[in-house]
């Protein structure tokens, strides 16, 4: 990570499509602990196996989600970009990333603290429910995409 920046204008949680329609108090609470970050092309947001401590709201750039196996080059299985969210491994034990995330080009995001999010969900389960209702479709979409990739639809 290139470091946290406070450029003008700062990124706001409320401006990301994922949080459209969220309870303002919830947005304010998670936003209070959010930090802004940038990565240059080639830098990693996280590596597979690392502790998963953040939820990323992407505003700019492109991030490749990579899988690897011994003696095989890394394979990008998906790219995500502006308006996308990244990461849910922080939501369920063992809280470890399941893939690498590498910036393909200069990337700017808001980084939400996973512990703050989990505490917020514990304190107000309705916020957690709202959050899951937003996140599950994203997960479902990516699962469907992965299934179709396995089908190799262009290869048959």
């Amino acid at each position: 990570m290139s470091g946290h920046v406070r450029s003008d204008p700062p990124l706001r949680v409320a401006d990301h499509p994922f949080f459209q329609g969220a309870d303002p108090a919830f947005v304010e609470r998670v936003g209070h602990h959010a930090t802004e970050a940038t990565w240059e092309a080639g830098e990693f947001l996280f590596h597979e196996g690392d502790p998963a401590r953040s939820f990323y709201l992407l505003f700019l750039g492109k991030v490749a989600l990579e899988l690897g196996a011994p003696d095989r080059p890394k394979l990008t299985i998906q790219t995500v970009g502006p308006r996308d969210v990244l990461g849910w491994s922080w939501l369920v034990p063992p809280y470890r990333w399941r893939f690498d995330a590498r910036a393909v080009k200069a990337t700017r995001a808001l980084v939400l603290d996973a512990e703050v999010l989990r505490e917020a969900f514990e304190a107000r389960p309705e916020d957690g429910y709202w959050f899951l209702l937003r996140l599950v479709p994203v997960i479902g979409e990516r699962l469907e995409m992965a299934r179709l990739q396995i089908l190799d639809i262009y290869g048959v």
Binding site: T76, K105, D152
Partner: peptide
């Protein structure tokens, strides 16, 4: 494309993932 190595700087994913853009 459906999958790529690190020499690909474009998008990876189904065409439907590009529709929101």
């Amino acid at each position: 494309v459906d999958a790529a190595g690190r020499d690909w700087y474009g998008d990876v994913g189904l065409v439907t993932a590009r529709l929101p853009d």
